[in-house]
């Protein structure tokens, strides 16, 4: 290797080549840990996941919190937008990668998706534990002055604009994760949930719970957004596989669901042609 060759810089990964092939790794080290010679069999999946993101192992409490979050997020259920996207791909026989790509594209969004989690995490960074700051921010959505590829946010991030009250699974998740957390955000959110819901005029959503958990795990917004995308993929995957097996004939098409307001009606030439052909 010469100095002029392009290299990949990494604080995460190091490889030692096999003696007979410079392109095959004999040992792989993740942040200093021998992945296949030491870590495999000792670290749980969430511990390794945390290590990959933070380059340090989690404490026992952090591992339990991340594990709880991973279980809570793993399957948003078949009505969720991202899972529906995956099922739409699955039912038509798309590649499995396309099913997950569809789930990622839709689940990236600002309603129930990963971008909403990142924006909710920004709220924590801006407001901390200042209830008045939260109340102001939730009732005055910050808007980018410049246009962006992301549309403007239409509801307070972390809250459900279509909710009537905080749904039970959200409350159950918050209660469990707040009990696991050694951080401050989840307990504070549990304590002040009703006041925050009043300020935003919306009930707390799973994105809001996830954001607080990710703050307590000391992830930054980019890491939180990425983890949220990743952790919700299992549900998208299995529902896509399930609908592929059921087949498109058993999947909603909304046959009578579309109302077209500007239908010009059948074109005369088409009718004539059809008559001639028929």
């Amino acid at each position: 290797m010469t100095d002029s060759e392009d290299v990949i810089h990494s604080r995460i990964w190091e490889e030692v080549p096999e003696t007979d092939n410079p392109f095959a790794a004999s040992a792989c080290f993740c942040s200093g840990f021998d992945v296949y010679g030491d870590l495999l069999g000792k670290a749980s999946w969430v511990e390794y996941l945390y290590l990959l993101f933070k380059q340090e192992p989690p404490s026992a409490e952090q591992a339990v919190l991340l594990e709880g979050l991973a279980v809570a997020l793993a399957n948003p259920g078949p009505r969720d937008h991202s899972v529906r996207a995956a099922m739409n791909a699955g039912v038509g026989g798309s590649t499995h990668a396309a099913c997950l790509t569809a789930a990622l594209a839709v689940g990236a969004g600002q309603l129930g998706g990963a971008r909403e989690v990142a924006l909710a995490m920004e709220n924590w960074r801006e407001c901390g534990h200042d209830l008045d700051a939260w109340k102001h921010r939730l009732s005055h959505l910050p808007q980018e002055q410049r246009v962006d590829v992301w549309p403007d946010m239409e509801h307070p991030p972390g809250f459900d604009p279509h909710g009537a009250s905080c749904a039970r699974p959200i409350r159950q998740t918050l209660t469990y994760l707040a009990r696991c957390s050694s951080g401050d955000a989840l307990p504070w959110l549990q304590q002040h949930r009703c006041e925050l819901e009043s300020a935003s005029d919306c009930p707390l959503a799973m994105t809001g719970v996830a954001a607080a958990a990710l703050v307590d795990l000391e992830f930054n917004a980019g890491q939180g957004e990425t983890l949220y995308l990743l952790l919700r993929l299992p549900g998208a995957a299995v529902h896509a596989l399930e609908q592929q097996a059921y087949g498109y004939k058993h999947y909603p098409f909304f046959k009578d669901g579309l109302e077209l307001t500007d239908d010009p009606g059948p074109a005369p030439q088409h009718d004539n042609h059809r008559e001639r052909v028929g």
Binding site: M1, E5, D6, V7, I8, H9, S10, R11, I12, W13, E14, E15, V16, P17, P22, F23, A24, A25, F29, S31, G32, D34, Q55, E56
Partner: peptide
């Protein structure tokens, strides 16, 4: 990329 072209800059073993 050969293994050695991953320029590791992280924690020690």
């Amino acid at each position: 990329f050969r293994c050695e072209r991953v320029d590791y800059q992280g924690k020690p073993r």
